[in-house]
């Protein structure tokens, strides 16, 4: 295939798949006469999206702010933690099992606890987003720091480099591609976290909207809310993928992956 055609097809592919998928969905709902409170047709979901735009917009904004706040905290914390465990063997040995243990706890189970501590509202959602998304950041940064070639370390140490020199000159730049790759994963996890917490313990946000809509059997509205969350997730992902490509171009092969990396 001609390269430019291939590239254009690559960019168009996600859209094509979404459109074909929606059409199939619509067709099979009609064909099998699916009840709306089980699985609404996409056209009904779009109707709900338009009809309740005001409410959805209000809740979506709230979710976005909550998610981004939790995400920013997670990035800062994950970065510091990753540098710590990636550059110190002792910190790695001491903290890694703890981190794995913590990451194995389903964060949903912690939401009621946070309600006890902070009450219903934004705080549990921000914290859940934070808890779900700092882990990949920390692990990736630590991996980037720890995978230093031993020979390069020998070269630097024989010149009298301190541990700090090695981290600053080599470790951190080398960890950057890992760091930016982790942001893409972390932001999607942050959405998961904040929406889960909103479902359980909030009066605002897409999670709340979805929860109330399903209690009232307004299933098209439930789907409309979920669509909005995933659209926000995709947008953020694409944004970070673009930043990643700009900042760490030296590490990325010049291939276009449609949704950017």
């Amino acid at each position: 295939m001609i390269p430019s055609v291939r590239r254009n097809l690559g960019t168009a592919m996600p859209w094509l798949i979404v459109i074909v998928g929606l059409l199939l969905w619509e067709a099979s709902c009609r064909a099998f006469d699916m009840p709306e409170f089980v699985l609404p047709r996409p056209s009904r979901i779009i109707e709900a999206l338009i009809a309740d735009f005001g409410a959805i917009w209000f809740h979506a904004q709230h979710t976005l702010i909550t998610t981004v706040t939790g995400f920013i905290l997670a990035v800062l914390f994950g970065l510091v933690l990753g540098i710590l465990i990636g550059s110190s063997q002792l910190a790695y040995q001491g903290l890694y099992p703890l981190l794995v243990g913590f990451n194995s706890v389903p964060k949903v189970a912690l939401v009621p606890l946070m309600v006890v501590w902070f009450g219903i509202g934004t705080a549990p959602a921000v914290l859940t987003a934070f808890m779900l998304s700092f882990f990949p950041v920390a692990v990736n940064v630590a991996t980037g720091l720890a995978t230093l070639e031993p020979e390069l370390e020998d070269v630097l140490r024989s010149l009298g480099a301190t541990r700090r020199d090695i981290v600053v000159k080599v470790g951190l730049p080398r960890a950057m591609p890992y760091f930016f790759a982790s942001l893409k994963v972390a932001i999607t996890l942050a959405f998961v976290g904040s929406v889960i917490a909103e479902t359980l313990a909030s009066n605002e946000g897409i999670g709340t909207l979805v929860e109330q809509a399903s209690a009232n059997f307004r299933v098209p509205l439930v789907f409309a809310g979920l669509f909005v969350v995933s659209a926000m997730g995709i947008l953020m992902y694409v944004g970070f993928a673009m930043i990643e490509r700009r900042v760490t171009g030296w590490a990325i092969r010049p291939v276009d992956f449609g949704i950017g990396g």
């Binding site: 070639e149 020979e151 390069l152 080599v170 030296w250 590490a251």
Partner: peptide, 8 residues
Amino acid sequence: QNPTLLPW
């Protein structure tokens, strides 16, 4: 044997 240059 391995040049170990910094790729960035």
